[in-house]
Design a protein around this nucleic acid. Structure first.
Length: 383
RNA sequence: GGGGGGUUUCCCGAGCGGUCAAAGGGGUCAGACUGUAAAUCUGAUGGCAAUGCCUUCGCAGGUUCGAAUCCUGCACCCCCCA
C-alpha cells in the first residue's frame, strides 16, 4: 500500500496467530515492524544521547506536538531545520498531537467542538489546540508521521462521555485530514471507543473511510485492567484495514506488547522503559528488578548475562549503589538497558513471526516474566 | 572559680504538665509508574501474643491523679567573665 512517499509492506503473517511482520517506508528510512518507539516528548529520550539511542536498536522515536509547541515553540524548531535536525535524530520520527494531554492534563483542559483549550502547565497562559492547529504544529516540526488530534478520556467512564469523545475524535480526524498539506508526512487516524467493542468497530469503520496511511488504537492503558485492553484489541484490530500499519498508543509493559502483537499490532510507544529505568526498575526475561532493593547490595551479577547494553557491563550491586547515591549515571544506564531490552524483544518477535513460532515465543517469555512474580510473592507471603 | 546555654526515638531537630511512641526533615526499607506536568509519587520506620499492652526523651531521685515537659542531685558538652 503506497500513500505518497509512504509504503507499507506486509511481509508475513504468523501461521498460528494474527502477528504480522511488515515494513513501513518513511522519508527518513524504512521501519521494520513490529517495533517499539522510545518516547522523546521534548525532543529528547530522557537521559539518552542520540548515539546511545541508535545503539539500542531503536528505529523510530516519538515526539509531542503539544509540549514542543509550548517550549521551545514549533516555529523555533522549524527555523532550526525541523525536529530531525533540532534533536539530531535522522531516523523516522512520529509526533503525537496533544490528544493524550487532554487526558493527562485534564485539570488544565477545556473541550469544545472546535478545539481543546489548555492552561499551560508551565506558565499558566492559555493556548488553543484545534485539529487544524495540531496538524499545523506537526507540519512545522516536520515529523514523518503525525497523529490526528483525538479526545482521550479516562477508563472506565460513563458511556455518554466515551461516546461523545469518540464521535468528536472522528470529526476531528476528518478535520485533521482535510487540513494536512505536507506530502512527506503521513497522518495516522486514532480509534477511540473506550471499552465498548461496537463503538470501537464503528470508530474504526469511520476512520477507514478517511483512507489514512496508518491507524492507531488509542485511549487504552488509561486505567482499565489489562484483560479489558486485550478484549478491546480483539474487537478492534480486525476492523482495521490489513494493508496499513497498526499502532497501539502508549502501551506498555513487555507482556502487553506481546499480547498486542499476537492480536495484529505493529507499532508501539511507551514511557515505561525510560521512566521506570529512571526510577530504578530494570526489565529482564526474569521479570522486573527493583534495583534499589537491599537484595542487590552484594549482587555481583549483571542485570542479564545475554544483554549487550552498557549497563550490563556492571554488577547489579554497582547499579544499586548508583541509585541509592542518586548518581545520574544510574537512571541513564537503566534507561539504556530497558530500551535495549524492549528493542531486543521486538527483534526476537519479528524473527519468531517469520518462522511461524510467535505463539511459542510468547509463551516462553510470559513464563519467564511469571517466574519472578511467583518468587516475589513467595518471599513476601507468610512463611 | 563565677555566670549562662544545652543533652529527645538511626541522625538532625520541634515539643516545655495530660489530646506524646513524641511535629518536621534526613537516612533506611518497601511499593507504584503504560501516546512523560514524573531522575517523580506513595507507604512504613521503638517492641510485641498488636482496636490493646510494654519500653523510650543524659543518669538517679522527687512533686503530681498524671512528667520529655516542674524540682533536687550527678555526668557530659558549649559560650562568656576570671
Amino acid at each position: 500500500m503506497a500513500h505518497g512517499s509512504f509504503r507499507f509492506t506486509l511481509l508475513h503473517t504468523d501461521a498460528h496467530c494474527r502477528a504480522r511482520r511488515s515494513r513501513f517506508h518513511t522519508p527518513h528510512g524504512a521501519v521494520e515492524l513490529p517495533t517499539f518507539m522510545p518516547v522523546a516528548t521534548l525532543a529528547s529520550v530522557k537521559g539518552l544521547q542520540i548515539d546511545a539511542i541508535r545503539a539500542t536498536g531503536t528505529q523510530m522515536v516519538l515526539g509531542n506536538a503539544y509540549h514542543l509547541a509550548l517550549r521551545p515553540g514549533e516555529k523555533v524548531v522549524e527555523n532550526l531545520g525541523g525536529l530531525h535536525r533540532f534533536m539530531g535524530w535522522h531516523g523516522p520520527i512520529l509526533t503525537d498531537s496533544g490528544g493524550f494531554q487532554i487526558f493527562s492534563l485534564a485539570q488544565c483542559t477545556r473541550i469544545t467542538e472546535s478545539h481543546a483549550t489548555f492552561r499551560s502547565h508551565i506558565d499558566g497562559h492559555e493556548l488553543q489546540v484545534s485539529p487544524e492547529r495540531a496538524v499545523e504544529i506537526q507540519e512545522s516540526l516536520g515529523s514523518d508521521i503525525a497523529m490526528v488530534l483525538d479526545h482521550v478520556v479516562a477508563l472506565p467512564n460513563e458511556s455518554d462521555v466515551v461516546r461523545e469523545a469518540t464521535e468528536r475524535s472522528v470529526r476531528w480526524a476528518r478535520r485533521c485530514r482535510d487540513a494536512a498539506r505536507r506530502e512527506d508526512q503521513a497522518l495516522f487516524g486514532i480509534v477511540q471507543g473506550g471499552l465498548d467493542p461496537e463503538l470501537r468497530q464503528w470508530c474504526a469503520e469511520q476512520l477507514t473511510e478517511l483512507d489514512m496511511p496508518g491507524y492507531a488504537v488509542g485511549g487504552l492503558s488509561v486505567g482499565e485492567p489489562p484483560a479489558e485492553m486485550y478484549r478491546i484489541l480483539d474487537a478492534t484490530v480486525p476492523a482495521l484495514p490489513a494493508d496499513r500499519p497498526r499502532y497501539l498508543m502508549g502501551v506498555g509493559r513487555p507482556q502487553d506488547l506481546l499480547e498486542a502483537i499476537r492480536r495484529g499490532i505493529d507499532l508501539f510507544d511507551c514511557v515505561m522503559p525510560t521512566r521506570n529505568g529512571r526510577n530504578a526498575l530494570a526489565f529482564t526475561d526474569q521479570g522486573p528488578l527493583r534495583l534499589r532493593n537491599l537484595q542487590y547490595q552484594h549482587d555481583d551479577r549483571p542485570l542479564e548475562t545475554t544483554c549487550p547494553c552498557p549497563a550490563c557491563r556492571h554488577s547489579r550491586a554497582y547499579l544499586r549503589h548508583l541509585f541509592v547515591s542518586r548518581e545520574m549515571l544510574g537512571p541513564i544506564l537503566l534507561s539504556l538497558h530497558n530500551v535495549t531490552y524492549y528493542q531486543r524483544l521486538m527483534t526476537d518477535a519479528r524473527q519468531a513471526i517469520v518462522e511461524d513460532r510467535f505463539e511459542s515465543f510468547y509463551a516462553r517469555k510470559m513464563q519467564g516474566w511469571q517466574s519472578v512474580a511467583t518468587t516475589c510473592a513467595k518471599q513476601r507471603g507468610p512463611a
